[in-house]
Design a protein around this nucleic acid. Structure first.
Lengths: 225, 225
DNA sequence: CGGCGCCTTGAACCAAGTCAAGCTCTGTGG
DNA sequence: CCACAGAGCTTGACTTGGTTCAAGGCGCCG
């Protein structure tokens, strides 16, 4: 079976980084592999680090966090995923991260062996798998860059990234302050203080603590330097 | 042409993370693409960020740094590569990093279009490309983890990583203190101080400033916590 | 309306950064 | 062969951004 994506003029032309989800969108359907829907409730584990990586997931609604627990008990949140995003794709036999639902989350579950076996026959599918991993790599490197910057820069980047991914200046944060802190390598107190600081500078408004509206993008852009 | 790696019982069984170079080793020869040797002198640029990503490289001897310049003039070193390592592989049309030789470095140059075209015909090559990018992803995530830790933890991880990659307790550092600092998100002064600290704790010895011998791995392992 | 999580705010502290010498190689020219 | 110059590394004193510790406030749900 040939993937729909093969319609593109050049099978080896890749999606731009800025339009992160185009390639993934309805990935399950586009490659024609059987996908079974499944729902996870808030804070439920979807899979754990070092478990057999038998499935990959496409988010239909809700959102998830992928993370790694460190031996000293600290938690590093690697990424947040939203509707349309894929997660859980591995080249090895085991997951290298854990994943939990941030909110009630509906996903499509794809059998890894089926996808990989398809990839051996359809080079377009193989290219897509590579492309997905490559995009994760970009994200991971960007994240590493972030971790070298100051607290205000990290928080500003985080807000702008969310805003861009949702195509909206009004953000409904599905994650807690602790989640944000563990993602940015800060403490909840610092995240909170920086948000207050942004609010005082009129860069953002906070109708409730889980809702952030970007009022002055320029100020935040300025923070990123 | 079928790649040598296809001898493996299961074409879709992937190399363990711990044996990082097995898959890459003599990659150029293993996939049978024409590779032209080329030599770069110390500090020479091999390619620049955002240039067309027409080639990928396999290191024969020497070593390189890949990095990103930030708008504020800071430099983040993403990774160091050594003989046997591959670098410069992109899914997009442009490089997303710059690369420079740390020392006099000999590389094999492979045309990206040739490798990619081969991948559309040989699914084993496609799998290898995916696998290489996936390994880079592991490295990038490990690096992000590192950047959340304390200065001693970062330096200890760096030394242990180098030691493991070279399979030796005696390290000849091909990079400057500034390179190390830019990789670990620290200042040269902090790197220097931490090394002195390790020396006083008899965890390492420093015959010269570019040579480090790991004397007590347990102390360093303990730092990583 | 009361209790419990989660978030915010304040004050004291500390790890790493900054600034400023001084030291150690290495290569060069007298 | 030695003196010197320069780059890179180390060390010390001081500053600072972010953490830690400790209250206090807000909102949500029983």
């Amino acid at each position: 079976m040939l993937s729909e994506a093969a319609r593109e003029s050049d099978a080896w032309q890749f999606a731009r980084q800025t339009t992160v989800s185009i390639d993934d969108h309805a990935f399950a359907r586009s490659i024609g592999v059987i996908a079974t829907p499944k729902t996870f409730s808030r804070d439920a584990e979807i899979y754990g680090d070092e478990e057999p990586a038998d499935y990959l997931y496409e988010i239909v609604s809700g959102s998830v966090r992928t993370f790694k627990m460190l031996m000293d008990g600290r938690r590093q949140i690697v990424a947040f995923y939203q509707p349309g995003d894929l997660f859980g794709l591995e080249t090895g036999e085991e997951y290298t991260l854990s994943t939990e639902a941030l909110t009630e989350t509906k996903v499509l579950v794809l059998k890894r062996s089926a996808v990989i076996s398809l990839a051996t026959r359809d080079s377009e599918v193989a290219r897509q798998l590579w492309s997905i991993t490559s995009r994760e790599l970009q994200r991971a490197r960007l994240h590493a860059l972030l971790l070298c910057k100051s607290a205000p820069e990290r928080v500003a980047s985080f807000l702008l990234d969310l805003s861009e991914r949702n195509q909206s200046a009004c953000l409904e944060l599905s994650m807690s302050r602790q989640d944000i802190a563990d993602h940015l390598g800060l403490t909840i107190e610092t995240v909170s203080r920086v948000l207050s600081q942004f609010e005082q500078a009129s860069a953002i408004a906070r109708p409730t603590c889980r809702r952030v509206e970007i009022r002055n993008r320029t100020v935040l852009d300025g923070m990123i330097g």
